[in-house]
Write a protein that binds this DNA or RNA. Structure first.
Length: 950
RNA sequence: GCGGGGGUGCCCGAGCUAGGCCAAAGGGGGUGGACUGAGGCUCCACUGGAGUAGUCCUGCGCGGGUUCAAAUCCCGCCCCCCGCACCA
């Protein structure tokens, strides 16, 4: 056999890839138009070009392409288009970072992605960046062999596309799915802009949480104590103030309120705040406050641990449940008895007290740990003590009485509602993981945005439609359906417009830009038309709402629409024809990260805008890619650019490694060793194709190999349909390869040459089966085998059931079992074996074995078997017992052999050449007789010959 | 916290919804051998332990249980990963 060194083969792969990519493109074989043929429309989430592709990006695209290619071979008119997502802020952010000279980023661009030095400065222009990376990504897509119809390419800032988005939002607006509301966001007071994770130092996502503010009346105004545990108000015995901080008396919530000066500043972003006067914290210590629930007068005490920058800078003191409070009260030698509020089984009266006294915290950090521990415990396991009611002031007692015995979460809600209702408290928002800093260095605050536009995914009618869509949609893998159900349920109002970024302005409020996850929900429809819009030379201004209504919904009168928008009737009808041919979308591919957002919006928007018969039919979700066991990340500097990987390993190898090495839903680990294994296996088939020196003898080995091949075709086809690519590749690349080796051994054991026709049949079928995975190599092989059609357009093979030969396969399996048994013996055999004798049972027990099998298959046990056969002697009973045991542990192959009624002696004898070859020993097959039994003192059972090693 | 997914042999990873073909697929790696001028190619054998006979023991996160029989079913526990919004 000819062997090619691996590197040479990789070079060959690259050469072949280039050649066929050019051929495909030149012959436009992936350009699909409506025709009289069943169609399959598939898309993969379009890329966001703010970086070149790395290995990880490749997976979804290749997975989608493998399926597209498969469906094409299954006789579908397949459309696989691609576009580019320019909308939003990340491109701008990235360009900003380049402009600012971000060291890490520049280093990655220069040294990992190998972007030419003269290009890098130009990337500070967002549009240049987007276009540059778009071309870069496109090149990668071509080089990996995606079967895309490139005529339809567009970007989301093309004016035609904007016209389409305007239509989409007008539709949503008219259906009442767009609403106006207020919304809290992380906000930079200097930029005057919302900040997300991308905009903060260290990429911290600002987490917004809610504090309950409780008003403690004083003669200077209400002290606004902020708390996360309002239910402990019953046990508030003092109010903490930081004596070193400045406080402000302000007018807010319709009253005079005392908060820290810093809090007053921040609260301005949430509510109206009018600062009346400023006071030193120490001054406040002179006053006393009233607990609004108990009505008791309590002291205002100094505490350094109170952070004036967090929430209101005023804290209520609950020594029974807050370790800080107990610790500092004790330290200040204030003698106030803690008042327990929450009871936890197995805990003492005053948990904070006990915790502090038993674990001796040394500093605030220790106290913080204790606090978290206690909060968690009481939140999850605590119930409200009933004796707290005694403390409640008269007018609230009746209303609060149900709180006794309630779980903490419920009690919290109850008391909060009461406080709010009585105007004894309110809620404020705060950054929970503070401090979070904007890139400009300022601390991020919470701002409540007024007049924000939302898509109302909480709208019950819309939600119901979305769920219906999901219920009728294919989800691959099926387990992911749960994630979708959860996401659809959970989605509520979602802001759909931003103040900055690239994209389409909201049609009715042009200062807002439609946000990127909102303008990419039904764009698949646009693919069906994009090249036609260009072809007809339509201007965006002609793409009015009614134009789209006609094309996409079939609404309106063609003539009138054509006339008013100065579009030819034929053109309009043609567009409508294209759209209706391709829509609905058959399958959408993406990564799992898009389930709670993009894919769910995709479902919602289709459900909201299109009639049911145009709802998408399926989604497929695949896992991520790891590199040598680790997630690819900037910080690890282990990002592998896709194009580089293609150059190193070859497109086909990368395709297989990305799409088919693990189950769809799991993350795939790309390793150098794994890639090499794929290369070597591909190479083996390529070499196999070049084998030419065989014979034409057509015997058992040939029947066996054909049987294996056709069985494989049969099994692999449904696996392809359900996208179980891992199993397919396992069969095609690894199992089939070992079948061939096995076949060659069988042939050799008969001391003859292999059969040319069989090998050719195997290789030719293999090229077809393998074509979706390794389109370049197989296309080349197909042509080298003398065909002049495109393999990519050939039909998927169908199995010839007549060639699936159970008997031949079973017999061969049995021979292998015999070899295993003999080897097990040889393994412990001392001395040099010269020959093996197999004494085959005469078959007189076959009936009994069959009946034992029958009992077992019906779920019966030894007992049933014994009862059925009623042994007449002890010896017979023993034999029956042995047989039952034997049958219980019997390999499937043997079971089927027993049931097949073939003659065991014949079957065994047929295997002699192969056994000899594999064992490299003389093998003899003889009948098992009484004499033999006495001589070797071993027992034989059906298909378990007595084995003697000499 | 809520929701989802996991913990399998040196590593990666199937199997576990339908309990017996499971010492547990497949790949990687390792060891030995064949081929070869040489091989990082290819092929064969071995790769939990013990054993002069096809067997036995241990074993699929931990601890119990059901069953003639459990990686697979039930109960409890521990640990890991992912998502949780205006951000692509």
């Amino acid at each position: 056999m000819i062997t090619i060194p691996s590197q040479e083969f990789t070079d060959l792969l690259n050469e072949i890839s280039k050649k066929w990519q050019e051929e495909w493109s030149k012959n436009r074989i992936f350009e699909a138009d409506p025709r009289d043929q069943k169609k399959f429309f598939t898309t993969v989430a379009f890329p966001y070009p703010n970086s070149p592709f790395h290995l990880g990006h490749g997976r979804t695209y290749v997975t989608g392409d493998v399926y597209a290619r498969f469906m094409r071979m299954r006789g579908y008119n397949v459309l696989f288009p691609m576009g580019f997502h320019f909308t939003g802020t990340p491109i701008i952010t990235m360009a900003d970072d380049v402009a600012k000279g971000d060291k890490d980023l520049l280093d990655i661009f220069r040294n990992i992605y190998e972007i030419p030095p003269d290009v890098i400065p130009k990337l500070s222009d967002p549009l240049f960046m987007a276009n540059y990376f778009k071309e870069e990504i496109k090149a990668a897509m071509r080089e990996i062999g995606l079967s895309i119809d490139w005529r339809r390419e567009f970007t989301t800032i093309d004016p035609h596309f904007s016209a389409f988005i305007v239509w989409q939002f007008s539709k949503l607006q008219k259906k009442g799915y767009v609403v106006k509301d207020t919304h809290p966001v992380g906000w930079c007071p200097v930029h005057n802009l919302p900040v997300g994770m991308h905009d903060t130092k260290g990429d911290m996502e600002p987490e917004i949480g809610e504090y309950v503010v409780i008003f403690f009346e004083t003669k200077m105004g209400s002290l606004a104590a902020a708390t996360l545990r309002p239910e402990t108000i019953f046990g508030a015995v003092a109010v903490w103030i930081n004596p070193k901080a400045t406080y402000a008396v302000v007018e807010s919530w319709g009253r005079r309120v005392i908060v820290s000066e810093r809090a007053a500043e921040k609260l301005k972003f949430q509510i109206d705040v009018k600062v009346l006067e400023k006071v030193n914290g120490s001054e406040l210590l002179k006053i006393t406050a009233i607990n609004p629930v108990t009505g008791k007068e309590i002291p205002v005490l100094p505490a350094d641990f109170v952070d004036p920058t967090t929430a209101t800078g005023v804290v209520m003191s609950v020594p029974a449940h807050a370790p800080f409070d107990y610790y500092y009260l004790k330290k200040a030698k204030v003698s106030i008895e803690p008042i327990p509020v929450v009871a936890v089984e197995g805990q003492g009266e005053s948990p904070a007290k006990e915790l502090v006294e038993s674990s001796h915290p040394k500093n605030d950090a220790d106290l913080k740990k204790l606090t978290e521990q206690l909060y968690r415990l009481e939140y999850n396991k605590g119930v409200m003590r009933s004796d707290v009611l005694r403390l409640v002031k008269e007018e609230l007692r009746a209303e609060l009485s149900p709180i006794a015995g309630k779980q903490v979460p419920e009690a919290r809600k109850m008391i909060t509602d009461l406080l709010l209702q009585r105007k004894a408290g309110t809620k404020i928002l705060e950054i929970m993981n503070k401090p979070v800093y904007c890139r400009c260095g300022n601390e991020v605050v919470v701002k409540i945005l007024q007049d924000q536009w939302f898509l109302d995914y909480g709208n019950p009618e819309w939600k119901a439609k979305a769920k219906k869509l999901l219920a009728n949609m294919r989800v691959i893998p099926e387990e992911t359906r749960k994630d979708f159900e959860y996401a659809l349920d959970w989605l509520q109002k979602r802001a759909c417009a931003r103040t900055r970024g690239l994209g389409t302005p909201l049609p009715w409020d042009k200062k807002w830009i439609i946000e990127s996850l909102s303008d990419s929900t039904i764009y698949m429809a646009y693919y069906t038309l994009s090249h036609k819009l260009r072809e007809f030379g339509l201007h965006p201004s002609q793409l009015t709402e009614e134009t789209w209504d006609y094309i996409l919904l079939g609404e309106g009168d063609v003539k009138a629409v054509a006339e008013r928008n100065k579009i030819g009737i034929e053109a309009l009808q043609e567009l409508r024809r294209h759209f209706t041919y391709w829509y609905p979308l058959d399958l959408r591919h993406s990564g799992p990260d898009l389930i709670p957002n993009h894919l769910s919006f995709f479902i919602f928007n289709h459900a909201g805008i299109f009639p049911e018969d145009l709802w998408p039919r399926g989604v497929a979700v695949n896992g991520f890619i790891l590199y040598e066991g680790k997630k690819m990340s900037k910080s690890l500097r282990n990002i592998v650019p896709l194009r580089k990987a293609i150059r190193t390993y070859g497109a086909d190898v990368i395709r297989i490694a990305l799409s088919s090495l693990v189950d769809m839903s799991s993350d795939a680990n790309f390793t150098e060793a794994g890639a090499r294994a794929i290369t070597d296996n591909l190479k083996r088939f390529y070499e196999l194709m070049q084998m030419r020196s065989g014979s034409s003898i057509d015997g058992t080995p040939e029947r066996w190999l054909r049987s294996k091949l056709h069985r494989l075709v049969r099994d692999v086809t449904p696996l392809m349909e359900s996208m179980r690519f891992r199993e397919v590749i396992n069969e095609l690349l690894f199992n089939l390869s070992s079948y061939i080796n096995e076949y060659l051994e069988m042939v050799r054991s008969e001391s003859r040459e292999y059969n040319n026709d069989v090998i050719r049949e195997v290789v030719e079928t293999w090229t077809k089966l393998m074509s979706p995975f390794a389109p370049h190599l197989t296309e080349e092989m197909w042509h080298q085998m003398g065909h002049n059609t495109f393999l990519s357009l050939e039909s998927w093979p169908t199995p010839d059931f007549n060639k699936i030969n159970d008997e031949v396969e079973l017999e061969h399996e049995y021979h292998k079992l015999l070899i295993e048994d003999i080897r097990a013996i040889l393994n412990v055999y001392k001395g040099k074996p010269s020959a093996v004798v197999l004494y085959v049972h005469d078959g007189s027990l076959n009936q009994v074995v069959k009946s034992a099998l029958d009992v077992l298959s019906k779920g019966g046990t030894m007992k049933d078997f014994m009862q059925m056969n009623t042994p007449k002697s002890k010896e017979e009973a023993r034999t029956l017992q042995r047989i039952m045991q034997y049958v219980t542990e019997m390999p499937e192959t043997v079971k089927r052999l027993v049931l097949s009624n073939v003659n065991e002696m014949d079957v065994t004898r047929k295997g002699v050449p192969f056994l000899r070859y594999k064992l490299n020993l003389e093998v003899e097959v003889l009948p098992y007789t009484q004499e033999v039994r006495q001589k070797i003192n071993k027992e034989a059972l059906p298909y378990r010959p007595a084995i003697l090693v000499k």
